[in-house]
Computed example of a mutant assay.
Amino acid sequence: MSTVEVQELDGAPGLGLLYPKAVLTGFTRSGKELPGTGYLRRAVEVDRTQLAQYSRVCGFGVTDTLPVTYPHILTFPMAIKLMTAPGFPFPLVGLVHIGNRIHQLRPVRAGEPLDLRVWAQNLGDHDRGRQFEVVSEAAVGEEVLWREVSTYLRREKSSGAKESRPETPELPEAAALWRVPKDIGRRYAKVSGDSNPIHLYPLSAKLFGFPRHIAHGMWSKARCLAAFEGRLPDAYTAEVSFKLPILLPGKVAFRTERIGDGWEFDLRAAGDGRPHLAGTIS
């Protein structure tokens, strides 16, 4: 982040204002470079009530240690502010979250005031358009405890052919079958602040081209990692590729296999095996 100009924020950006802004200003965006700016919030305290609610929605136990995915919801408003700021090259509406990598350098405790940083980097070509990364960090003083890299795709190309089904690793039979309730999008939105209409109701999702509302990708990642609770070291990396969305309500199969010192896992539709997510823990 040394080459990024940092703007310090006094509080969390209001997502209730940023989402309408994204819709209203998206058609004016056209650029070729990412902004050389990032955001910083200092000494952010964790709301333990929200932490407990988040843990329950995602399947984690309620403890004083943050689930590995929890800092994402602390930095997410800053990331949305970055992607809706003047000069950002792409409209937020239509961006596809295709990958997420989280490095936990050590467990984060709820009582630790966190310095949060967010910036964008690595704009480049993708087979279907352009992609870039949004990097988020949580630190205590000079010690970085957690780092996340989210990869987003701006679709700009189409071959005209029917898109092939994404490949996922061959893993053993399902370790668990999970019913994903129709209100999980609204429940996750309540604890995360991510109230994108594609996740809330069938009608609002249809306005953006989906047959029904869909589960948040970061909920599905969190739910998978919750299944490993108690089996992971203090420091590790959890990386996923997001495949096809989970239409709500749904039923999914969670599969996993031990690979060396880590794990491979995936999430598929329980009926026809359509892939929703594929990941590794190392």
Rank of each mutant, 00 (worst) to 15 (best):
I259D: 03
E167H: 05
Q131A: 06
G11N: 04
V118K: 01
R187D: 08
P197L: 12
A120T: 11
F27E: 05
A205Y: 09
D127R: 08
H276E: 06
D125W: 07
Q104S: 04
F88Q: 14
Y70V: 06
L207F: 12
A161L: 07
N196H: 07
L123V: 13
G61W: 15
A278Q: 06
P20G: 10
L74D: 10
R41V: 06
T168P: 07
D115W: 12
A175G: 01
E173N: 14
L92R: 10
I198C: 02
K243G: 14
P86A: 01
A222Y: 08
A278S: 13
G26T: 06
P197A: 05
P89A: 11
H276V: 02
R117E: 15
T280D: 08
V93P: 03
M218H: 09
T256C: 00
G26E: 12
T256R: 02
R255T: 05
E239Q: 02
T280W: 05
G99P: 00
Y70S: 05
L18K: 09
A43P: 10
K190Y: 15
V68R: 13
V62N: 01
G160W: 09
H213V: 05
R42T: 15
P249H: 08
N196D: 01
L248T: 09
R187G: 08
H72D: 07
L15Y: 00
F60K: 00
P181N: 10
G217K: 00
H103T: 03
D234V: 10
L200D: 03
A253V: 15
V44A: 14
G273S: 02
R147H: 11
G124P: 03
P169C: 15
T256E: 04
E137Q: 11
P202K: 03
E5Q: 14
K182P: 06
T65P: 14
E229G: 01
S241M: 03
K221P: 00
L74E: 02
P35V: 03
A270I: 12
I73A: 08
L171K: 01
A52R: 15
P107W: 02
R128S: 04
R268Y: 15
F210D: 13
S195L: 09
Q131P: 03
R187K: 14
E137C: 11
A227N: 05
A174Q: 04
A139C: 03
V6N: 01
G141M: 13
M218D: 12
W119Y: 07
